[in-house]
Simulated assay, not measured.
Amino acid sequence: MPSDVQTVNPKDPALIAEADRAALRCPLCGEDNQCAVAAGDEATSCWCFAPGLTTPAALLAQIPPEARNRQCVCAACVARAMAGGSVADGAAKHER
């Protein structure tokens, strides 16, 4: 390949539209949700496909309507909910 030709990484954050960037953030705490699908990878490679992992229904109910089926909750929010904590606990830590 000639040295003056640049390859483009389709996963480069600078090339991702704002709506697509939103899909990479947790709708509850705003942190990176590490969603494989939103990043363009296979769904089965996502952390949420880990054996034995079940996202609590009460946590899913907290997702704002406009984010449902568009943004995934992050692993940290799922872990807090499974441990009996709240999303507010995590949001306060992110604000510090």
Rank of each mutant, 00 (worst) to 15 (best):
A76R: 08
D41I: 03
A83C: 00
M1P: 01
A88R: 14
I63S: 04
K93P: 06
A14Y: 11
P56V: 05
A81W: 05
C46V: 00
N69T: 09
C74Y: 01
N9K: 09
D20T: 08
T44D: 15
A22P: 10
W47Y: 01
P51S: 08
I63A: 02
R21A: 11
T54C: 08
L28Y: 00
W47C: 03
D32Y: 12
L24R: 14
R96H: 13
R25G: 07
L15C: 09
I16Y: 02
R25D: 01
L60W: 02
A81E: 05
T7S: 15
I63R: 00
G90D: 01
P27R: 05
A36L: 00
T7H: 14
A83Q: 10
R70I: 11
L15R: 05
G30R: 09
P13W: 03
E18A: 13
S86R: 10
V5F: 12
S86I: 00
R96D: 13
Q34F: 07
L15N: 09
R70Q: 14
V87Y: 06
S86V: 04
N9M: 04
A39N: 10
P2Y: 04
F49N: 15
D41A: 15
P65G: 02
L53I: 03
T54F: 10
R70P: 07
C77V: 04
C26D: 07
C46W: 02
G84A: 08
S45L: 09
A76V: 12
P65R: 01
P56Q: 06
A38M: 00
L28E: 04
C26E: 03
A57D: 10
K11D: 12
S45R: 11
N69I: 08
A81L: 03
A23N: 03
R96N: 14
D12N: 09
A23Q: 07
K11H: 15
S3I: 14
A43R: 06
A19N: 13
A22K: 14
A92R: 13
V78E: 03
I63N: 02
M82D: 12
T54H: 09
E18Q: 12
N69S: 12
G40K: 07
D32I: 10
P64Q: 00
G90W: 06
N69P: 04
M82K: 15
A17T: 14
L53Q: 04
S86E: 12
E66K: 09
S45N: 11
A91C: 15
A61P: 04
P51L: 07
D12E: 07
A92F: 05
C29P: 07
L15F: 03
L59E: 05
L53M: 05
S86W: 00
D89G: 08
P2Q: 01
G84H: 04
E31G: 14
E31M: 15
D32G: 08
P13F: 06
